[in-house]
Design a protein around this nucleic acid. Sequence first.
DNA 1: CGAAATCTTGAGTATAATCAAAAACGGTGG
DNA 2: CCACCGTTTTTGATTATACTCAAGATTTCG
Lengths: 248, 248
Amino acid sequence: MSATFHPGYNPMIRKIESIFALNDGERQALLKLPMQVMAIKADQDIVREGDSPSRSCLILSGFAATYKVTAQGKRQIVSFNLPGDVPDLQSLHLKVLDNSVSTISPCSVGFIPHEALRDVCERYPRITAAFWRETLIDAAIFREWVLNVGRREAYTRMAHVLCELLTRLRAVGLAEDHSCDLPITQNEFADAIGVTNVHVNRVLQQLRAEGLIELNGDRLNILDWEKLKQVGEFDPTYLYLENNQAAA
Amino acid sequence: MSATFHPGYNPMIRKIESIFALNDGERQALLKLPMQVMAIKADQDIVREGDSPSRSCLILSGFAATYKVTAQGKRQIVSFNLPGDVPDLQSLHLKVLDNSVSTISPCSVGFIPHEALRDVCERYPRITAAFWRETLIDAAIFREWVLNVGRREAYTRMAHVLCELLTRLRAVGLAEDHSCDLPITQNEFADAIGVTNVHVNRVLQQLRAEGLIELNGDRLNILDWEKLKQVGEFDPTYLYLENNQAAA
DNA sequence: CGAAATCTTGAGTATAATCAAAAACGGTGG
DNA sequence: CCACCGTTTTTGATTATACTCAAGATTTCG
């Protein structure tokens, strides 16, 4: 695992600038955030439920997942984390983590000390607001997932998750119009939509049979985006992508 | 519907003071927040998905629920809102609401203009942090609900929701040790745990038959708290009740 | 007291789980 | 480059949890 500081770029900036224009002081403060960058293999926990980290992790590249586990040992992924996300930003205000975060593909992750984040927030209230806003969007996504898992059937759920992933990947420049790399196994999809891997396999075959998607290996190709959105009952409002073409 | 301003008390204060001691300026600012208080009947929407409110609502008394609806018209409650909660605080930063909030019992609700909230946040960074923290706890509850609905069976889910409700009601002084008023219908429980009302009826009977609870009308009495927690896989960590005896 | 809402019960059905095993794939080392 | 091994995907058969539909009992409230 390599480690450097001040990589000189920070995907948080791009996200914030889709909401408002940063001034020089703010941009510099974000660029100067100390950050320990590590390469992490697939399927490694980055942080664990019960931890009290003194830093937060910024996904620089790769896919990660936020998850919880029942007393019976069943895993539920509550969110996929893409480049630009800070899945444990909450730990800035909540001492004990109530969830784990694991890589699902090889990732590059930047660790930023809470001290440095607090300092930036103190000096730049608009950055505080932007971080707060990010956590509110996370909450909106969780709400949609409660609905998805609670009130939709597996076929619809699967379509919905695929729509969300493509839309979010587009927003960070990691998808073409209707296709993207998607290094997520059927087991992981199962843990995300709350069904078994066997059933994921069956609904995926159904989506393929309907001519909606191609999904082989790490590659997703959406053949009928309008139909998939309809089948998945997908309306991207809850992602709050504002100045963004991605919601098209 | 009656309307007054500056009721002279504010249940947000109590919540914040369980985390840190407010100074005089902060407390005065919170007490002076302009607030339009309204009495709202049961089963009325307070705000609706798609709204862009210019104020947030503070539940002063009664029970409310945050919910979303599928394209098929199925409702999913994503959170119960108790006195002291501000279920649409998110609207301070996110222009369009992605969920509705409805009363489930008669409620007294205080509406606070965003302008006033922004002003307080600007002048008192610790209050900003406290509000942010509240929204992070909301997110933690959503995560637990995704797990609950996605990976637990109905009997366990129901027990879990009852544990959460009693614990949260205790924290705001609305429950005795093991009982509380609970004006929630089986239909509403159904929408909260993602099953039908018929099935809620059956798991409740099972919980009664096991000697874990009494639940008639609006009254919940938990006969075996330890067992119910165990059955519901309930660990209150995710509620972040800090300086609070409620988690006992 | 009566109407509406809520709760309860039963029978039949559907979606998804479980279990087990085979096929396909992907990466690694010889 | 190919053989091998672990992982992932696929298939089939059986079972279980929860849904649907329908009707009756009970409670609540005006």
